[in-house]
């Protein structure tokens, strides 16, 4: 069996008297789409935040490529190659697509203009952004300087996914990527996710949408009461089984985990 690219063991995180993560384990295999599902309050957001550095777990270890890592900020995880697309997308509406893609990791001009005057290399950033968007089939016109607020929900999601795909060398985490979208826009974003997976980047997908999860995921991690209840293959189980596990209406067979 191959080693997981990203794994976690015995994660514990408490908020006051609430235990959000209760000795939780997690494994993401190379090249797969792993869906994480769970009822509200099951602790899946906390799990994802612990993996992306937004939350520091009290106990437990996180391993990336077999090496122990401890992230204390989202930028740590990002520098290690883990990109997260948040549900809120984390984009500045008044700024352009290119500005948003490079927010926090701008390219400066070579030579004295970049080093001393810290001038940005706009052309390099725009070319790169255009390239990444067309790679994912999102770009038909040249206006990379369009502000994000002029885009539709699906286009914004597309830019956010493209940003993650452009910089996420190891893992991409998608938090509810289709939650705010219409049926057709969701479809486009799902295809985009498959495109990214086909490029060999493993994806963690958090979603409440069972059809989307069952369509995309190679494995499904079911989270319940702050820990991993089981990991199922979506081809062996039905959606109602998954919902039953998630809500505790049904116990998984021991070998499923």
């Amino acid at each position: 069996m191959t080693t997981p690219i990203l794994s976690a063991k015995n994660l514990v995180k408490r908020y006051g008297r609430v235990t959000a993560l209760d000795h939780c384990d997690f494994e993401l295999m190379p090249g797969e789409i792993l869906a994480v599902i769970g009822d509200n309050g099951a602790g899946k957001s906390t799990l994802i935040k612990a993996l992306s550095g937004a939350v520091v777990p009290e106990e437990g270890e996180v391993y990336l490529d077999g090496k122990r890592v401890s992230f204390t900020a989202p930028t740590d995880a990002r520098d290690a190659g883990i990109e997260t697309v948040y549900q809120t997308l984390a984009m500045s509406p008044a700024l352009s697509i290119a500005d948003n893609m490079f927010m926090g990791r701008e390219i400066r001009k070579p030579g004295i203009m970049g080093k001393v005057f810290r001038q940005l290399d706009r052309k390099a950033m725009e070319d790169f952004a255009r390239q990444k968007l067309s790679d994912l089939g999102l770009m038909t016109i040249q206006n990379i300087n369009q502000t994000v607020e002029t885009l539709s929900g699906g286009q914004r999601q597309g830019v956010a996914v493209a940003r993650a795909a452009a910089f996420g060398s190891k893992v991409i985490i998608l938090d509810e990527p289709t939650a705010a979208l219409g049926v057709k826009e969701s479809r486009r974003v799902l295809e985009l996710i498959q495109d990214v997976r086909d490029r060999g980047i493993p994806i963690i997908l958090i979603s409440h949408n069972m059809p989307h999860v069952f369509e995309l995921a190679d494995r499904v991690h079911i989270h319940r009461l702050g820990r991993r209840l089981c990991v199922i293959n979506p081809r062996d189980y039905s959606m109602s089984d998954a919902v039953a596990f998630m809500t505790g209406a049904k116990e998984p067979e021991p070998q499923a985990a």
């Binding site: 989202p74 930028t75 990002r78 997260t84 948040y86 809120t88 997308l89 984390a90 984009m91 500045s92 509406p93 008044a94 700024l95 500005d99 948003n100 927010m103 926090g104 990791r105 701008e106 940005l120």
Partner: peptide, 17 residues
């Protein structure tokens, strides 16, 4: 650019690094 991003949406700016 960060000045604009912070004024636009500080949380988004924070998450973008």
């Amino acid at each position: 650019r960060h000045v604009y991003a912070v004024g636009d949406d500080p949380e988004a700016a924070q998450l973008s690094g």
